[in-house]
């Protein structure tokens, strides 16, 4: 085999090992969140409040497009009443969590990697270690906890706004009754749908935070390296979101 390919494969395995150790450290140091509560609240604000508009727009237009596309197909069968069910289940089970996850992977993931990467390049991470502080406790735990706490409400917002967008299309384009739409949308949702839909963002949040922090902390090679790692963080987080979504849809859905 090509020597470069072997070296790349070895680096990938080493990277996976380092990432696993970081995830282990996150669990080991989880209790330190109480010592870094101010930082955690600040991160919650940056991830949550600051992402609200992006999630709002993402959710709204996903719901609108979903209603438009399915509405045109259902109209040919005279089944536009099913738009509500399609949008409701589609948003809560799949599109709400995935769209919110992908948007947050781009926004939060890029933010975490570029921040920690810049700190790594300017020796701030070394300074933390040199003065007896743990970068995991001071930087990774607050970002992970903030993501775990904030991703669920943000996904919920994307879901609700998406269904609202679907309702607008259903009412204005396909002339469905608003109360019938809401009634169908709500009664279509079973406990299982809500459980799967609300469990996904917790996993997405955890992996987006840890992957982006990992790439930030392992930044080297100046600004070029920082750019490369920021791209990697967004790409790997986004890919993992799709994989986790598939696992949930296929495996967890069948098990429940």
């Amino acid at each position: 085999m090509d020597k470069n390919k072997v070296s790349r494969f070895t680096k990938m395995i080493e990277g996976l090992q380092e990432f696993s150790l970081l995830v282990r450290d996150v669990f080991v140091h989880l209790g330190s969140v109480k010592d870094n509560w101010n930082e955690t609240v600040k991160e919650m604000y940056l991830i949550g409040t600051k992402s609200f508009f992006l999630i709002f727009l993402g959710g709204l237009f996903t719901g609108i497009i979903l209603a438009l596309e399915t509405g045109h197909q259902l109209e040919t069968f005279g089944a536009t009443a099913w738009i509500a069910k399609t949008v409701s289940l589609g948003m809560v089970r799949e599109l709400g969590p995935v769209i919110a996850g992908l948007l947050l992977a781009a926004r939060t993931g890029a933010k975490n990697t570029s921040e920690l990467g810049a700190m790594q390049l300017s020796e701030q991470i070394d300074a933390l270690k040199a003065f007896g502080a743990s970068p995991i406790e001071k930087l990774v735990i607050p970002r992970t906890i903030a993501a775990l706490v904030m991703f669920l409400p943000l996904t919920l917002i994307a879901d609700i706004v998406g269904i609202f967008g679907g309702m607008l299309v259903s009412n204005q384009t396909f002339h469905s009754d608003i109360s019938v739409f809401w009634n169908t949308a709500i009664t279509s949702l079973k406990m299982k749908d809500l459980f799967v839909g609300f469990l996904k963002p917790i996993f997405f949040g955890f992996f987006i935070a840890t992957i982006s922090c990992y790439f930030g902390l392992t930044t080297k090679g100046g600004t070029t390296g920082l750019g490369k790692n920021t791209i990697n963080a967004v790409v790997y987080s986004s890919a993992l979101i799709l994989v986790i979504d598939f696992i949930f849809t296929k495996v967890v859905w069948e098990l429940l």
Partner: peptide, 9 residues
């Protein structure tokens, strides 16, 4: 330790 680039936050 005083770092070359100061490493201030």
């Amino acid at each position: 330790m005083v770092f070359q680039g100061n490493a201030l936050f």
